[in-house]
Design a protein around this nucleic acid. Structure first.
Length: 731
DNA sequence: AAAGCGTTTATTTTT
DNA sequence: TAAACGCTTT
């Protein structure tokens, strides 16, 4: 039997072997943190005889949990399945399904996503006659979410109201929670808050779970919020074996109420905690690590960390300016193709990271044009697509008829003649009778035909038809496998027919539904009821990174946030510009804390790279209307000069290839000097703007700025000669 | 009731 | 820019 300590450095070994009492592991990027966690668990089980079901490990994504389990399975066999492993949200969902009735939560509870929450908030605001223009539903929701993340219930929040806005929030929070509770629904924050409350008010339940979990581990601790840390403390309350792993420099989720102070709190709450510092990097080249360290070093609110590596120096970092986002994308793809051809890299080695999802578009389009396969992480999330959500809403109502958000969503989907007026009447009727919407609907069947109904007989027929539909489906859900239930929903509700009739994108939507059905198929082995519940939970808690498939060929397009925890041989960070990274918001708010988080985000991105790192920015970026001139990111100026490859012009198309690395000093002269500069009066052609006349051409930096008056109402544009695809035409 | 139109308005990151 | 909203028309 191989020892589990083999191949670990002294600090890593220390972390693995410290199993008695609290432990704080500060783990720099690429320091083998996952390895330590995996070996620590295996050590507990294999060498110390701890039963796997007595260990809980909380990860940041489901993917991380899955991968860790797979690695553990290799080390300790099938008993790895008995470990409790998942995100805080998934773990809490599990706890609440099992123990929820102690706090009045039925096990069929529905998990509301962001969109559902917004719906409820809007509904509440309408009811309370709060002007959504004056108080943005989003802002209110964010405030409620923040309160919940700090374990403040509606009642507790009410007592702390400081100003009028909070007063408004308080009222909305109160009613919002009433609606959720009544419909047996929970939002993301409730998964945490309610778990905390469950343990807080039911010591018998807490004691059972405290007793069970001998060891509690929390990964990505720097990105946990107050509620999550509180739950971890509750679970570890008996045996006090709480191990948290984190890196303050990689804390990038404060906007999601993550509280970096948790690390300080931990040291306060567990003064006897041992601290292990993992500062040796096994991932990145020396160049990449030095560059990243230089960027993060500019943060003032941090404890200086010195990271080391024994990796080779590697290749210099490439910093490139492109004319606009299209050419930025093109440059990246040309580079990817070049690496694939000449540097034994495959597409799946490469990732392009960016600050905002909107940036993926130019990249996607370029991939399509250049025929480079790609894997897009995020964007419009699969489970959030309208048609998918519609089917899911049916499934939710089938599983939990109290789910009024979903019920309201599907009442008239596909259109069946139940309009807003009828819905309003129905809601009113339900409230008057003190019944749920579903119960009210069911009541219509027995209604005497002579009874005075507030709508037309036609509407009534539509409503009773709808109830019958739901009743039928609920019946069938008892015996159908989940995938077949999806099929039944799509068929019987008329969604299929409706989508088929849609010539615009009906086909694509049907494909999405087919994909949902395939996803449901995974749970066909379960009991119908169980399978349905599992599918719904998966749909609510599945993130996009979770689906990222390393094996699949293609480059990865991903936001910097989602890239946390991943690594790639080749990384491009696109949009290294003021206003994007750092984001405009951090600049505008003049909040140093926000700016430091932007810098950490940049650091996280850079440290994902193993061998090659490219930082690109555009001279202009099409953001609303025409492209605005852009300034290179301040983070670029923190890069040590000697780590950057001397800039060469990249002018696609045609692409003047970087000279081979034979000559150590690329000539300072760039392509521009080879082109004969244009002069005023020349007729030129631009692939997008068409024909134009050069107004002037002046040297700018080591380039030429050409001013061209284009025809066709395109106007006068200033272009950089080395980037703009201008061709001279005779005339 | 539903589709179509024009206007507005806000632009991050996501379990 | 494009999405989302609110208004009008059919």
């Amino acid at each position: 039997m191989t020892t589990l300590l083999e191949g670990l450095n002294p600090q890593q070994q220390e972390a693995v072997q410290h199993v008695d009492g609290p432990l704080l592991i500060i783990a720099g990027p690429g320091s083998g943190k996952t390895r330590v966690l995996v070996h620590r668990i295996a050590y507990l089980v294999r060498d110390l005889g701890v039963r796997p079901w007595r260990i809980v490990a909380v990860t940041f994504t489901n993917k991380a949990a899955r991968e860790m389990k797979e690695r553990l399975e290799r080390l300790m066999g099938p008993q790895a399945h008995d470990l409790t492993m998942g995100t805080f949200h998934a773990t809490c969902a599990m706890l609440l399904r099992r123990e929820g009735d102690a706090i009045g939560l039925d096990r069929t509870f529905t998990i509301y996503d962001d969109e559902d929450q917004q719906d409820v908030i809007k509904q509440v605001m309408e009811e309370l006659e709060i002007d959504p223009k004056r108080y943005k539903p989003q802002a209110i929701l964010a405030t409620i979410s923040n309160a919940k993340s700090q374990l403040l219930t509606a009642e507790e929040y009410r007592l702390r109201v400081q100003n009028y806005f909070e007063e408004v929030v308080s009222r909305v929070y109160q009613r919002y929670q009433e609606l959720l509770d009544r419909g047996n629904g929970v939002d993301f924050d409730d998964l945490l808050l309610k778990t905390y409350l469950l343990f807080h008010y039911h010591s018998d339940v807490l004691e059972r779970w405290q007793e069970r979990y001998l060891h509690v581990m929390v990964d990505e601790f720097q990105d946990t919020n107050v509620a999550q840390y509180a739950i971890a403390r509750q679970l570890a309350g008996k045996h006090r074996n709480l191990c948290v792993v984190g890196d303050p420099d990689q804390s990038i989720y404060s906007w999601r109420n993550a509280d970096i102070r948790n690390i300080l709190s931990f040291q306060r709450d567990f003064p006897d905690a041992k601290t292990v510092n993992l500062a040796h990097n096994y991932r990145s080249s020396r160049t990449i690590l030095e560059a990243a360290s230089a960027v993060i070093a500019a943060n003032t609110q941090r404890i200086p960390q010195h990271l080391t590596t024994s990796n080779p120096q590697g290749t210099p970092i490439t910093v490139t300016e492109a004319y606009n986002e299209e050419e930025e994308a093109l440059f990246i793809l040309r580079e990817v193709m070049r690496l694939a051809k000449t540097q034994h890299h495959s597409y799946r080695d490469c990732a392009v990271m960016y600050r905002t999802n909107a940036q993926s578009r130019a990249l996607e389009e370029a991939c399509a044009r250049e025929a480079v396969p790609y894997k897009l992480v995020g964007g419009v999330k699969f489970y959030q697509r309208r048609e998918v959500k519609d089917v899911l809403a049916y499934l939710r109502v089938i599983s939990n008829p109290g789910d009024e958000v979903s019920l309201a969503r599907i009442l008239n989907v596909p259109p069946r003649g139940i309009g807003t007026k009828t819905v309003d009447q129905l809601t009113f009727m339900a409230r008057a009778r003190g019944l749920s919407l579903y119960a009210t609907l069911e009541g219509l069947e027995q209604a005497h035909p002579a009874e005075n109904l507030p709508w037309t007989p036609r509407s009534n027929k539509a409503l009773t038809g709808f109830v019958h539909l739901l009743q039928g489906l609920r019946q069938e859900s008892q015996r159908l496998q989940v995938a077949d239930l999806v099929e039944a929903v799509v068929e019987q509700t008329g969604m299929r027919a409706h989508l088929k009739a849609d010539r615009q994108d009906g086909e694509e939507r049907l494909e999405n539904i087919a994909e949902l059905k395939a996803a449901a198929g995974e749970f066909n082995t379960l009991e119908p009821k169980e399978g349905l519940a599992t599918l719904l939970e998966r749909a609510a808690l599945m993130s996009d990174v979770d689906k990222l498939d390393e094996e699949q060929q293609g480059i990865t397009l991903i936001t910097l946030h989602q890239a946390k925890g991943l690594e790639f041989p080749v990384v491009f960070i696109a949009g290294m510009e003021e206003g994007l990274l750092p984001h405009i918001r951090a600049i505008r708010d003049e909040d140093p804390a926000q700016m430091e988080e932007e810098r950490r985000l940049c650091y996280v991105g850079m440290t994902r790279a193993k061998e090659r790192l490219y930082l690109t920015h555009a001279f202009r970026r099409g953001f609303g209307g025409r492209g605005e001139p852009r300034i290179a990111s301040r983070f670029l100026s923190d890069l040590p000069r000697q780590l950057i490859e001397a800039p060469t012009a990249s002018t696609p198309p045609p692409v003047p290839r970087r000279r081979a690395d034979l000559s150590p000093l690329p000539e300072p002269a760039n392509t521009t000097s080879q082109k004969s500069p244009l002069k005023a009066g020349d007729k030129v052609h631009h692939p997008r703007f068409g024909e134009g006349i050069v107004v002037r051409c002046i040297p700018a930096r080591d380039d030429h700025e050409v001013t061209v008056a284009f025809g066709n109402g395109q106007g006068v544009k200033r272009l950089l000669l080395s980037y703009a695809p201008l061709t001279r035409v005779q005339g």
